[in-house]
Every structure is written in C-alpha cells, then in structure tokens.
Design a protein around this nucleic acid. Structure first.
Lengths: 333, 333
DNA sequence: TTGTAAGCGTTATCAT
DNA sequence: ATGATAACGCTTACAA
C-alpha cells in the first residue's frame, strides 16, 4: 500500500502539500501540483479513506438503514437514496434492521461508529423514545416513513392512514360493501395506520367492520395467501379485499385463481405501494402509490443541504398517497 | 464523543487495558475488566470503528459491489450475502456499479480505500484484464457470477450457456419449433452465454436461427415489451419466446395480453432467474432457476473461511441452472 | 506557496 | 496482568 508519505518523497514535497493537492481546496502552485499528481500516478496511490475520515472527521459516507435489503419496496428506496447521493460524490453504507429492535439499534450504532456524516433510517421496531434519544447524537439523522412529533424536521413520512382510507373508499365507490382487509403486522406503524384508514372508510359509510374479515399477515405474498384462506374458511361473504401492500395482493390473486375465482369479477383486489411488478400482475393491480423513491431522494437532499451545505430547492416532509387505477377492481354499481 | 481515553481515566487504568477488554483476547483480571466495563457503560462509550480499523488494519467489513441496488435479482443476492456475514458479526458495505465500467472501477476502489477486509463483486462492464489486475491487490476478492480462468478459485459462476440451452430445449421438447428469443444486453457475459445456449439448442435440433426472431433488450420489463413488439411487426411466425430473464418474460406477458394473445395457448414463454414474482405471474412462469442466493452465500462463506479463518464445510465454485416447471408453456406435442 | 508538527481514536509492541 | 509509547495514514493549524 502506498501512502501519502511515499508520494511526498517521490515528488520532493512535504506531506502537507500532497494532502493539499488531494483536497483541492488550498492553493498549490501548478508546478508542484503536477509533480505530486505525477508521483501519485506513478505509485498508483490510492487514498486511505479510513485515515482520511479519522483525521478530518468527515467520511463522505451516509449510512442507510432499511428493514430488508431485498424486496421491491426497499429496493426502490435504497436505489433512490444511492442515486441522489452518488451524484453528489457521496457514498452510501447500507445495513439492515430486519424489523428487529436489537438489530435496528445495532445497525444505527454501527453507522454512527463507522463515522457516517449522516444517517437515513427506516426503523420499525424501535420506540419513539429511542429515536428521540439517538437523534441527539452528533450524527445528523433523517427518519424515513416515520413520524415523531418532537422530531418533525427530521422525519419524512407518508400519510398511511389516508392511504388505507383511500383504498377502502375506492372499493366502496365501486359498489363493494363486504370488504375484507389483510392488514400488515400490527407491530409496524405503517400497517396500523393503513388499517385505521380502512376502518374509518368503512365507518364513514356505515359499513360493519367484521373482525372475521380482517387478517393480520406479513407484508409478503404468503400473508395474502393465508389471509384469503382464512376468509374463505370463515364462510363470510366478501366481494373485495383491501391489502396492506402489493405483495400481499399478489399472494391473494395467486391463491384466488388457484381456487377457481375469476379476477376481478369474483373478487376485487387493491394493493398498496405500487411497486414495479404491480403493473405486471394479471389483472393489472389497482393500488395506492407510495412515493418511497421520492421520499428517499428527499432524505438525501435534506442531508446534502444540511450536512454538505449544498443548495437544494424544495424540501418536503409530508407525502400523500394517491390512487393508481388499473384493472383489479370490478365495478358493482 | 467519548473515547477510550476518558474510559481509562474513569476506570483508573491505562489506555491499553481498555483496549484489551474491548477486544476480549488478552487476559485481563476480572476485577479490572468490570471496572472498565462499568466506566464504558457510565460514559455511554461507543468504539470508533474508523480508528480501530486504521490501527488494526481490520475493519470487520466486507464490501459488496452489485450492478443495481434495486431489482429482485440483486435483492436476493445482497440479502444472502448480508445474512451470512451478519450472522458471523461482519458488516457489509454495499455499493453499485450500474453496469458501467468507470462506476464499477470506482466502486471497487472505494471498497478497497474503505479498508474492507474483503470484497464480493458482481461486475459486468469491466474487462478480464482489469479483474486480473485488481485481484492482485491486498484486499481479497470474490467475483460472483463471473468466470475468469486464471482466477478460478476467486470466481463463483453459473453455467449460463447451459441455462440458455435448457430453456430453449424445454420449448423444443414441448413441440415448439418457431422460437423467438429476447436476449439480454450483449455487453454482459451472462446474456451472451444464454443466447449462445439458445442457438446451440436450436442447432442441435436442426431448427433455423432467424435473426428477425432475436431481439437484444434490457434485462427489464421494457425489454420484453419492445422485443415482442418487434417480433409481431416482423410478421414471422413464432409460438414461443425464450427470455433472458424473468423481468423480460413479465414484459412479454403483459404486452401479449394487451394485444389479445391468450397465454400460454397463443404464446409460450420461459424466463430465467426464478425471482420471487415469477410464481405470481399469470400464468405462473416456467423459468430457469438461478441460484443467486446460494452463490452469494457461498461467496460469503469463502471469505469467512479465507479471511476470518472460520471453518466452513463444502465450498463450491460452479453452479448449474435447473428447470422450474410451471404453467407458461403450452404443450404442442 | 510550502513545510513542520500536533493531533484523530485505536491497536500493538515492549517493558515492567 | 498492566502500563508507556510508538505506530496507523491523513488533516490542519501555525510557521516560514
């Protein structure tokens, strides 16, 4: 490994000068700059970022904590953050919290320990109190898809309650009255809010909320499969299912078809998130758009502005979901 | 930020002792160990990983370079690597190469500069020569889904040619003779090999290879859409399409249905990769299994063995794709 | 413009 | 078992 020291020797200048040409800021004469650059090239010098960040207390890295590293939802989010930051010459260090309190804490601590200049976190298992505590750390943090009142300027969130309301309202508008709901894990705030929205929509239209037509499942295909299975067994009537995300909806559609139901005539389905594959399902899935990529990009922009002092135009903390109309709802009116 | 120094003061021991209890290895008396631990807890001490890795030349981090951070294929791969490594207490630093030569190089250089203990790379744009050069660096590297003869023990690869052959052979076995092929970008070795496999299968069965029935598209839904559009316009007959990956197949299916084709009766489709959503398409997609998660896990295991000296059982460098039979092929025999 | 030297927070080599 | 102290590779006042 070649160091700044060897470069300085070859170029016959001091350590400081080499450091200066690396950082570009201070003025160095063109002549010496070229000598140094030549020496670097000759030696194949590659700066040691670890040493740089220890000395400068700046890593040019932003930490990103997500629940899972796979899955279309987090994929979109990570990708948006990475793209925005990479364009600004910053690197992203991604780690996973697996929706587990200890692992989420561990992930955040890791990113702090790693000297990240800032952290973008999508945490689900950790308490508001913990967030308030950790937000006091020196490392600036942005919480994505989470709202903590005392930390409003550090939060970027989606109105999930409204999203849930919108989904169920859409079903009702199409004439559905017996609407089942596959909610996400009620340990997650997003899932709780979406379910609350569903219930509000039902209540506003004086539709009964049957517990037998609510199922709490994972945010995955299997959640949809298990949910529909339960509903069918319950012998309750239902013409539509509101799903807490698109993967659940996909599971529902697969299982429904396996059991001879014709979609959407026999069963209407609506999803949530509008991930990439939603438009490639059959029938094309009507869903609620979750602008997770915009939120990720916004988180990056806030950091670019606050931490790296780059000018940014519009900053936004709240996002509203919108309806994406496709073909998975039968009109009963 | 509290440092090892403040801990040593509070515990009334030396810096070295604090360092020792952190690392656990050297023997420290129980009494002092507890004093130190207590001091750490009291001060809320958190080790500075940057300083640690500068001093010890060990970061406990493995770098992972993938082409894209989103998408089901890379999601599976990243997740597999992260899971295996995290279980061993190692962290993963993920960065994206975007299938661009400069960005791939930049990504690898970043991971080296960042002092990663090892690197797992999925590179597509970079030349074999570059790989051979960079593999000489001090940082151990594993190349996933790529084969460079001189670096066989550092490569984990899939027999893509056979995969392509298997896909087309499957169509032929089902009685198809006019088979179109949507190949991936021919700048990527995987795509080239799969197409070669397709051609070999056609040739072995004395079926003509029409250039008008081959389309080179992106590894995304749009590639499938554009490909099928071209084939339809060409006015050539075809009863089946072999796709270079599942996303292309999904695009084909969507477009086919929009144009009134009934699947699989009017058009048979086979994909490649067997990503999660393949089994949720309609009809369920017959495809070629790409054990990318196993390959990712294996890459992690090799590093655990070689770099972190952990015992590992079976090590494997070559993987073979297999057929996943589902419902997207019509039988013409 | 350039050089000197004191850190940055650890680890690791010697002693003791 | 514990403590000094010199690295690790770089940045950054402060001098010159």
């Amino acid at each position: 490994m070649t160091t700044i020291y060897q470069v300085s020797e070859l170029a016959k200048v001091s350590l400081a000068t080499v450091s200066r040409v690396m950082n570009g800021n201070s003025r160095v004469s063109d002549k010496t700059r070229e000598k140094v650059l030549a020496a670097m090239k000759e030696l194949g010098y590659r700066p040691n970022l670890t040493a740089q960040s220890l000395a400068s207390n700046r890593s040019n890295c932003v930490g990103l904590l997500v629940s899972e590293i796979h899955g279309p939802f987090f994929g979109q989010m990570m990708s948006a953050v990475e793209t925005e930051l990479r364009a600004a010459g910053k690197h992203v260090i991604i780690t996973a919290g697996h929706s587990d309190e200890e692992k989420e804490k561990d992930g955040i601590e890791f990113l702090i320990s790693r000297n990240c200049d800032a952290i973008i976190a999508h945490v689900e298992a950790v308490s508001d109190e913990y967030i308030e505590g950790i937000a006091k750390e020196k490392t600036p943090m942005i919480f994505i898809s989470r709202y903590v009142a005392s930390l409003a300027d550090k939060c970027i969130s989606l109105n999930n309650e409204y999203g849930g309301y919108l989904a169920t309202s859409t079903m009702i508008k199409h004439g559905h009255k017996e609407i089942a709901c596959i909610a996400g894990p009620q340990s997650k705030a997003d899932a709780v809010a979406r379910l609350a929205g569903h219930k509000r929509a039902m209540a506003e239209h004086n539709l009964p909320i049957k517990e037998s037509l609510i199922y709490e499942g994972e945010f995955k295909e299997i959640g949809g499969v298990l949910g529909l299975e339960k509903f069918i067994k319950s012998n309750d009537n239902f013409t539509a299912i509101v799903c807490a995300n698109d993967e659940i909806a996909s599971g529902v559609m697969t299982y429904a078809r396996e059991h001879g139901l014709h979609l959407p005539d026999d069963l209407s389905v609506i999803g949530f998130d509008n991930v990439v594959f939603a438009s490639h399902l059959y029938p094309k899935l009507t869903t609620i758009e979750n602008p997770v990529d915009q939120m990720g990009q916004m988180a990056a922009k806030i950091i670019l502005r606050d931490v790296y002092k780059q000018q940014q135009d519009e900053i936004q903390h709240f996002y509203s979901p919108t309806l994406i109309n496709r073909d998975s709802i039968a009109d009963l009116t």
